[in-house]
Design a protein around this nucleic acid. Structure first.
Lengths: 360, 360
DNA sequence: ATGAAAGCGCTAACAC
DNA sequence: GTGTTAGCGCTTTCAT
């Protein structure tokens, strides 16, 4: 048997990772068995207070930190709660903060898996599954149920945002249809009739909102105008050009706040004033929407409550072994700020100029 | 020996985690040994093409996913690159996105550890260390070198932002002093003399900027005015009130963009116009600063280059075993937008009114 | 080229 | 109470 005080002569494939203290080291130093040390360090009852004190002191003094990888493997529990989110999205940021604080002291650690252009959602979920998270929370997943189910590989999950119909997946969401209807009617009341929608792309959640928009428009005997957009500012900006160049809409319902902000930015860059020339609405009520310089009329989805509920759902699944599906729908709130107003009788010179600039 | 096709009758402490396929299962199904399967699935040379094909096919068909925990334990490598970041901070979001795309296909997986009010930085680092990341990237760490060194527990790291003097810690940063000096001189050129600074709190990085501000002011024979702020909007908003109530500054240099945005928001809420009544500058050039409704004059720290460089540094440490410290300093760029302008000869009625409102 | 066997550091059952 | 033992699922020798 090799001397345990030395770095392993062999076995370690390389020495990039320096040897760390093990349970055995602490056991040796305290003159007890590894098993005992394990129990004590995890605060299990059984060991006497005297040995517990000694072992704790030794571990502390030597600066021992348990190898989580090993303990996960042995206990077949990771106590990990996976979360997928998009780092740049302030709405996700707020949700993540609340998820963290809600998870605090519940015995779970949160593992964040980023979703970006270069690191797509299936991969992000894969990482969480491979890391053996016990349950996963998905923020605004863009996956179809089929692909989602495959990616989850049987793990229970809770989806915040879209309504996914899978037995192992709980849903925490806003009533999107009601929300979009509120938006349409808010604009209608202001006097708008030419209301366009910049959607979030051909994905699950965006589809719900788009359909709600179309239904609401038709219900009011108006013709819907859908322009394809996306979830980010840049996609919104592109869509803004398209609307300006091809329609005479006086109001735009954007898929979400980020998209709306991109639209506003692009429009303002072209000299169009908001809301004097064109009204804009968002969805999410993120921290940017609340700024005075932006003051976006939007939908507040009670995100803090949603985050908390998502954590509760997730933990119920693992701790109480709930297997039945739960759906939690929150009522949307319309927040009217400064980006919506009555339309002008006819398009302003500014808008005409902006249109002309695009056509060329 | 228990039937391997059944969930383990005992041994599993509970059945919250359902049994997943193991290497052994694949080996059995393919009629080879687990060792072989391992080699094949990791693409090692050695096994014959024929068996490789067969094993791959079986693994694929059965939907096998290796248990990363186990492989980490056995190989003593995690191939994990840890990153601490604050989810709500858009500047961090941009850095993280770039870090991810730069890490792509370099054989490392990124583990994100969130830092928030309820989940502080030492804990976030701890999590990364316990998860046995091989190297860590810290975004704008607020820790003193002493505490940082202890938290890292010997792991190599690279800090983006502050200048930390530790042999195992590389530094990627902007020249903060030069940047702040540019800001002061920009305002000076516009004609401001009563320039206040809202700092980022009593932390490492904020200190650098505050000292640079003070030095620049003194150099120009002006008296500095420092108001304590923080890294977030709310702290900026509080500081704005203090400045408005106790000074007659015509310009404010905020610790960073987020803080500046909080200041702007609070000021505008009180009827103060920017930049007509008061000029504001930020630091970071985050995506919000770029919006037309905000148009914040700020410092661009070349964040994409910084992110890329940080990843390179980190990977050099582990892959090439570099142990010598590297410091990379990027030149700051002043971005003049719409929040800075010439000061008025005397305070406007709006400012007076706002002041009076605060005093009461 | 393949199989057998010995761990990685820990946990959990079981003796004592 | 405490120590011993047998794995967890994988990687990596070392035989064959």
């Amino acid at each position: 048997m090799p001397d345990r005080n030395l770095p392993p002569a062999m076995g370690a494939p390389d020495d990039r990772v320096r040897r760390r203290l093990t349970l055995q080291d602490i056991a040796d130093a305290a003159g007890v068995s590894p098993g005992l040390v394990s129990m004590i360090l995890r605060g299990q009852s059984g060991p006497s207070a005297a040995t517990a004190a000694k072992v704790t002191e030794v571990a502390e003094r030597l600066g021992y930190r348990p190898n989580r990888t090993a303990s996960q493997l042995a206990s077949r529990r990771t106590q990990l709660l996976g979360v997928t989110s998009t780092p740049g999205n302030p709405y996700h940021g707020e949700l993540v903060e609340e998820i963290l604080s809600r998870t605090n002291d519940r015995g779970y650690e949160v593992l964040l898996s980023p979703v970006t252009r270069t690191h797509e959602e299936v991969g992000a979920i894969q990482t969480l599954v491979d890391s053996r998270c016990e349950v996963i929370i998905l923020l605004n997943t863009t996956l179809e149920p089929g692909r989602l189910e495959k990616a989850l590989d049987g793990l229970p999950a809770v989806v915040v945002g879209p309504s996914v119909d899978l037995p192992t997946v709980d849903v925490v969401r806003t009533d999107d249809s009601a929300a979009v209807t509120m938006l349409v009617e808010h604009l209608l009341e202001l006097g708008h009739t030419r209301i366009a929608h910049v959607d979030g792309g051909d994905l699950y959640l965006p589809r719900t909102r788009r359909e709600a928009y179309e239904a609401a428009m038709v219900r009011h005997r108006l013709s819907p105008l859908v322009v394809s957009g996306g979830e980010t500012e840049d996609r919104g900006a592109e869509a803004a050009d398209e609307i300006l160049g091809t329609s005479d809409s006086t109001a735009i319902i954007a898929y979400n706040d980020l998209c709306a902000i991109g639209i506003m930015d692009s429009l303002q860059k072209r000299g169009v004033r908001i809301p004097e020339d064109i009204s804009i609405t968002g969805f999410d009520n993120n921290r940017i929407a609340r700024l005075h310089g932006i003051a976006l009329t939007t939908i507040d989805p009670l995100k803090l409550e949603q985050a908390r509920r998502a954590v509760d759902c997730a933990i119920e699944r693992v701790d109480q072994g709930r297997t039945q599906r739960v759906i939690h729908e929150f009522p949307p709130h319309l927040i009217v700020r400064a980006t919506t107003a009555q339309p002008k009788a006819r398009a302003s010179r500014r808008v005409m100029a902006a249109r002309r600039a695009i056509d060329t």
